[in-house]
Amino acid sequence: MKGRNEDNFRELFERFMGSEEANRSAEDIRRGDELLGEHPAPGPSEELLQSIEATISVRLSHRRWYHLRQRPYRLGAVAAAIVVLVSFLARMEPGGKSSDLVYGSVIPAVLWESADIAAEDADLVAYTAEIEQIEEQIETLQSGEESGNGDSAISELEAELTNISGDFWKG
């Protein structure tokens, strides 16, 4: 078989031995190659080649199916990366500096700036009045001024506390 591996063996051998010996060794290689060329190996059968082609087709279709199955996951990962990138860029100014975040207060500005919150906040006024009323009722109960067995007063107090709790969580 004559191919592209035509090394200059004489030169190669001369790196390791004398010129005459290098010539002889290069000649050995040439005659060895000749010998191999005179005895070609059998080739693959047509059936084998067809079988390999069929196997390759099956492998390729498996590979395609695998890639198809992987696509949604890859798209998901890309989408997530884009979201992260966009949110990161949104926090950057054109100059590349991170901008200050703007925080919103849940407390209205009127109350925030007021000197007398109790007067400005209507809810607070109502709750304060109710708390005062409850305090009075507790004092009445403690002093035993109310007539009867006192159960009604306690029940009334409990109901009122429940109402206040409900109103509070409703905001």
């Binding site: 070609p40 390999i52 390759i56």
Partner: peptide
């Protein structure tokens, strides 16, 4: 490349069935 690769396997193993197997494996 099938011819050359087959020759390579055949000369190493001296067995056609085994060379068939190895060539198939190579292309897979």
């Amino acid at each position: 490349y099938a011819g050359r690769c087959y020759g390579y396997f055949y000369r190493l193993t001296g067995n056609r069935d085994l060379s068939d197997e190895l060539l198939s494996e190579l292309f897979v």
